[in-house]
Design a protein around this nucleic acid. Structure first.
Lengths: 339, 339
DNA sequence: TTCAATTGTGCAATCGATTGTCTGTTTATT
DNA sequence: AATAAACAGACAATCGATTGCACAATTGAA
């Protein structure tokens, strides 16, 4: 059972004829240990190839210096860049990161919370799954005062800090941009309306319409899960209207792409006959033809900020000030709306 | 220091007036515990909201049921899909996954190995960083008999199992495809030649040239780090040759994209004047115009297979049979080479 | 009825690092 | 020289779950 060749502080202690506590203190730079002893311990540790056992340390300290991350999918660019932001900041402050994917399935998400709790992570960063309407599984953390920060797809039911981008403004900028380009019938393909970010993008769009006195028409608003297939269906439906739209603001780039591909099939010219704006600035949006106008949101920044909040909560143990941080977005004008 | 409200097996034991060992055995379905006691323990655990402390268990068992993953960047699609494959399989077999990014920096990679070792992961899956030529930092694992599997960017120096795709065949298919399309001067932009996968892609390309009796010309072969900037430079150099190529096989899609963008700037028509084939089938390759012909390699499959190998090593402790598994690739013909 | 076999639990050590408290030594102060 | 203060290090308990061994209770066989 015991792994052969595990070198522990006791081996160092024995070799130097001192006690384990001295070795421990020497390695942790405790001032109660003299410079001479400290140096001897260091050298012996090096010589024996000692590697600290984080598990033992974690058990004793009931801290793991590890944070857990729950996200829908690493393979979506926004999330993978969020992870990069999380990891980078966590590393700087000496924390490790365990990543769990929910794959947008609520049972998986519940599994993730269990796993992270069992690993006794010091805090959790999460972006909730599309189909969770119930957030009880997050109570394992809140009940035990384990700091929790939501980002992007946040959950209002739970009172904790949150980091989002300015979805409202993004929606507003996208719609107003289309209006400024002379579009009159601007459709919106939005996401599930139990998620704030999609509500906000919609509200931004609506505000732009109202500001410019354009009518709000139900038939021009479609809500789905924003994947490729449903994007096709939505486009189909919009193009088949007796009075089809001359612009579409899609709540993500995947859907915008779907729309453009479908438009191409139908012989509808983008941007001349149909202007399109997406959301996220996925890497592909720059390279497709026509290139896609979109709203940029930095996953990296969001992840970074969320980690900063979380680690502050962990390290200061200020009784969770529930901040909600809103990061700026930026409209990127490209060909798909340039007419 | 002690987290308030930690429920341990001893709390359950006290509540039921039995010993901790009985509780532990009951929860682990040890046959020495009667059905009746087992049931009582279960119920009390539920009632008290007991959550096992994996750390304590790990320390005692010197197993963590966790595997570590070292990759260059989660934000590259191939790697994020590999992670999905790894996570999926690991989860099925009850293992957790810790992910570390090297960002293609060798010092970071060394840090990752330390971190994972300190966490006492049961095994490691790695794809090495571009600039490591030295692999001593992996010795922490091999020295202690911690199973290690490399994938994609493998390292020959260390004897262990490996999972790759058939890069040689991929290179061959790509080049032969261009030859079949009537191209005569086929250039190759390859990756760092200390990595097998790039050597193999090059060799596949060379074999196709030889098979079809085309001359191999040094000036048509450029090696760099395959990022966007260096792709531009390489394209620049090739286009400026007195006798420029009529086709380019790039060792990744990013470089192929760079080449196509640069060709567009120069007014060189793809595929009519220049046919292009990439490698990887990144998501964008399908959507750009013209769409990019490329060699598909499934990150998901590679990750899945690597995990299967690793977990077999961990669980069976067969003295590491050093398999090298080669997964198939597939040429995807799109517009960029269709003439 | 007695002894052995079977079954169900408890005791205590263990995993490796950390830390409060205690002891013994050296240095400074008057 | 005597006492206090500062210093270095050791001892032992602790974190929570697991497990070899011991022991008691029950059952069955002779």
């Amino acid at each position: 059972m015991k792994k052969e060749g595990e070198v522990t502080i006791h081996d160092i202690a024995k070799a130097l004829k001192v006690s384990g506590s001295t070795v421990s203190r020497a390695l942790n730079n405790n001032p109660r240990i003299s410079e001479k002893t400290r140096k001897a311990v260091r050298e012996m540790a090096e010589q024996l190839g000692y590697q600290p056992n984080a598990i033992a340390s974690n058990l004793r300290n009931s801290r793991t210096n590890t944070i857990g991350v729950i996200i829908p999918k690493v393979s979506r660019y926004f999330f993978s860049s969020a992870i990069t932001g999380i990891e980078e900041h966590a590393r700087e402050r000496g924390f490790n990161v365990i990543i769990c994917q929910s794959n947008d399935i609520k049972e998986r998400e519940a599994d993730c919370t269990q796993t992270l709790f069992a690993s006794r992570v010091d805090g959790v960063i999460s972006s909730v799954s599309l189909d969770s309407e119930n957030y009880d599984h997050y109570k394992v953390f809140t009940n035990k005062n384990i700091p929790l920060v939501f980002f992007d797809r946040i959950c209002d039911e739970i009172e904790t800090s949150k980091v989002v981008v300015d979805d409202f403004k993004g929606g507003f900028l996208a719609a107003e941009h289309l209006i400024n380009k002379g579009c009159k019938r601007i459709a919106h393909i939005g996401g599930p309306q139990h998620l704030n970010l999609y509500i906000n993008r919609l509200q931004g769009y609506l505000k732009a319409l109202r500001k410019h006195k354009l009518p709000v028409e139900q038939e021009l608003m479609i809500f789905n899960n924003l994947n490729r297939e449903e994007g096709f269906e939505a486009a189909e439906k919009l193009f088949s209207l007796p009075n089809p739209p001359d612009a579409i603001f899609a709540a993500n780039d995947t859907t915008a792409l779907s729309v453009m591909l479908h438009a191409k099939e139908r012989g509808i010219k983008v941007p001349e006959e149909l202007a399109v704006v997406g959301f996220s600035n996925e890497p592909f949006s720059e390279y497709i033809t026509p290139s896609l106008s979109t709203v940029e949101q930095s996953g990296f920044e969001v992840g970074h900020k969320a980690t900063e909040l979380l680690l502050d909560m962990i390290q200061n143990k200020i009784e969770d000030k529930q901040e909600t941080i809103v990061l700026p977005v930026k409209l990127i004008e490209r060909q798909s709306s340039n007419r």
